[in-house]
Design a protein around this nucleic acid. Structure first.
Lengths: 137, 137
DNA sequence: CCTTGACCCTGTAGTTGCTACAGGGTGCAT
DNA sequence: ATGCACCCTGTAGCAACTACAGGGTCAAGG
């Protein structure tokens, strides 16, 4: 299939596919006489792996390692587990941070009674960290 | 005070301060004879406002609007409330997304029993969306 | 007086993960 | 032959910084 079809079936953007090829995440496909990229099932499934991993928030470098493992089934799977676990920890940390943020924002907004910007508690609170309760970022 | 001291008291990076000036978020300060930037209390508190807002996740453009309001105390404060509320909604959405992600990651990792990459459930699950339960991103 | 080191300056390029052109070629139907 | 959808390369842009390179300034110590 051509790049447009691959884009359609994987949900990836054409530019993104070419970008992945450029950075070495996808192998260079065969070319037709007219220099068009021609993809097969192996490309499709590799791209699906990449997109799925990106959707789960893995970085390109993490995906590179995961693909490398996937290409070497005889290796130990511990590395994949380590990458995923460390990623999970980062996600959990991010959630905790955002929850602090959410509470802080809700508190700041709750103080606003409308009126003039000069008396606005939102603006006041943004200007002065001392109004904060939580220890956000 | 000079830029190094301003950086110290606000916790901002020197390069970041110059960057904020370049994009018009901070006013151009006076210069000494040697062309050094010289800051006063007004600069310090404006930078604190910016850093605090950034820590709370507001974008530069949102901060630009908030600063504009802060500079015009006679205006209506509804805009500040609107920006903050919309931001809070985004934070809540992001938390919800990350929670789905977290559950999905935990589920994938839980299936790993160690062993060889060829049999690894983590890698298998990344390669095939059909193993997913949630409707993550 | 001279040097050392800490600080400051400008301007530009790098980061991440794409996305968006500009300017051109190909393939098929009308 | 002409229109249109598709493909190609190469480069520049996004957010919000961060990191130099290559220079100037200033106070203290020898």
């Amino acid at each position: 299939m051509k790049i447009g079809e691959l884009a359609r079936v994987t949900g990836a953007n054409i530019e993104t596919i070419r970008y992945y090829e450029r950075i070495g995440l996808l192998p260079e496909p065969h070319r037709t006489a007219a220099n068009y990229r021609r993809y097969g099932e192996a490309h499709r499934s590799r791209l699906a792996f990449v997109r799925h991993s990106r959707d789960l928030g893995f970085t390109i470098e993490e995906i590179r390692s995961l693909l490398d493992l996937s290409d070497h089934p005889e290796r130990d799977c511990g590395e994949a587990d380590r990458i995923a676990t460390s990623h999970l920890e980062q996600v959990e940390e991010k959630i905790a941070q955002l929850e602090l943020l959410r509470d802080e924002l809700a508190r700041i907004i709750g103080r606003c009674r409308g009126g003039l910007a000069g008396d606005c508690r939102v603006i006041e609170a943004l200007g002065d960290h001392k109004y904060c309760e939580g220890t956000h970022a």
